[in-house]
Design a protein around this nucleic acid. Structure first.
Lengths: 243, 243
DNA sequence: TCAAAAGTGTTCCGAATACACCCATGC
DNA sequence: GCATGGGTGTATTCGGAACACTTTTGA
């Protein structure tokens, strides 16, 4: 790098030396979705430092110089939740000139789906507070984070219609009505129970277990799990997952 | 900015001053799609400078410090094609540590759809050569541009099933069989002519004109155009465009 | 025995499919 | 007239929507 005049490495027609373009900050922000009793939630942190001190924000961090974007997202998620193998996906880059008060910082937006029962998010040195918020009832957010969440929700809603990501929000073993609840929350749409059941089962990607719910004041529901192997087989045969 | 120790503006737990993170380059790359007689094409440039001199690449440029991402994409497209109001859309950020030989450069990928009859792309100072390539027959590409194109194609294929973007690849006035050709090329799938016709017309977003083809050695086809206003109305009533 | 949710079956309707067929033009 | 693609109609099949009904548990 440096001043060896490598301008026009790109299309650029002004003759700035290459190093003069290395003025951008880069961060990754993660919209973490969870599901709890009928509604979709987002995990937010309360910032412990300026700018936007005390504001609620989605968790994120600057990308390290030797770190790929996905690694960065994974690091943030693991750090915050302590969980490994979380489902996450990049969905959009946000780069408005004035989106960050301190300098030109581009952020790469990821969304992530977690089984929210699995852990308790905890506050730490960089966040005074960590809390789940219903997506229908979000506080005012730092930076352009409202925009980021809105875009994440739109992307997730599209995703969920073509790929079986709903399972990521449930425990390993779940009932069909729980699954229906997840889809209803994701799509803000009600489904007919018998029809939802038939449709899901006809896709052949969830398998019944020899187990049922316990301690419920009604007929206990059979438990199922998602058969990822089977799904991958079907996908290769060009079968789609539409809801 | 500078050395006023504004670390932990983000989650970062190492105590680097903020300015030390401003080490990233940022570029925008545009995958420009066109359609010609049954096949989908991509517009590539042949690089006139190192690195990857003489290699084929997708057009792109470094983002200016005071320029939003979409503006940057628009600038590149207008510059290259001379056309205004081109359809384009951001689809993915590429940021592997080693994707650029000169430094850490993140690129934001856009794809764009153009009516390829409208203009002749021309070579210029930054590109020795500009040429359309069939997507089934691409040359070896600079940087990670093959990966970028592949991802663009996947994204476009998803998009085209839920939003009426196929029209962007055709002239204002088109025949139904031309439209069918576009969709067949986009989805690499054959459609039944009468059924395609019925389905498209039942969506009420294309309107017949009082014009027909001329100088064809068969019954001349009626011309249609896309009714964007009508589409927006329908979209607000939550009607989807599925093919 | 009653409430509550699990789970099944059946009917109806509309949309997608598969095809057969006719029409207009240039040569 | 005939080749070529434009354009229409219909019978069949399949999947989704609506909804009535039975089953199993705890209290």
């Amino acid at each position: 790098m440096g001043q060896n005049n490598p301008d026009r490495y790109f299309l650029s027609e002004n003759n700035l030396p290459f190093a003069d373009f290395l003025h951008f900050g880069l961060s990754v922000d993660c919209v973490i979705f969870g599901y709890h009793s009928g509604s979709l939630r987002v995990l937010l942190i309360q910032r412990g430092a300026e700018p936007f001190k005390d504001s609620w924000a989605i968790p994120g961090d600057l990308v390290y110089p030797d770190e790929d974007l996905n690694n960065s997202a994974n690091r943030i998620l693991t750090h915050l939740t302590g969980l490994k193998n979380i489902y996450f996906e990049q969905f959009h880059a946000f780069g408005s000139v004035d989106r960050h008060p301190v300098g030109r910082v581009i952020t790469i937006g990821y969304y992530s789906l977690v089984r929210s029962e699995n852990y308790q998010p905890v506050a730490s040195m960089w966040a005074k507070n960590v809390k789940w918020f219903d997506i229908e009832d979000l506080p005012k957010l730092a930076f352009d984070h409202s925009e980021i969440i809105n875009k994440a929700i739109l992307n997730l809603r599209k995703k969920v219609r073509t790929e079986p990501v709903g399972f990521e929000l449930l425990p390993e073993k779940f009932t069909l009505l729980e699954l229906q609840g997840v889809y209803e929350a994701l799509l803000s749409e009600r489904f007919d129970k018998p029809n939802f059941r038939k449709k899901i089962l006809s896709m052949n990607v969830i398998t019944p277990l020899n187990e049922v719910e316990t301690n419920v004041a009604h007929r206990p529901a059979k438990l199922f799990n998602f058969d990822k192997k089977r799904y991958d087989e079907l996908k290769n045969n060009e079968i789609t997952f539409e809801l």
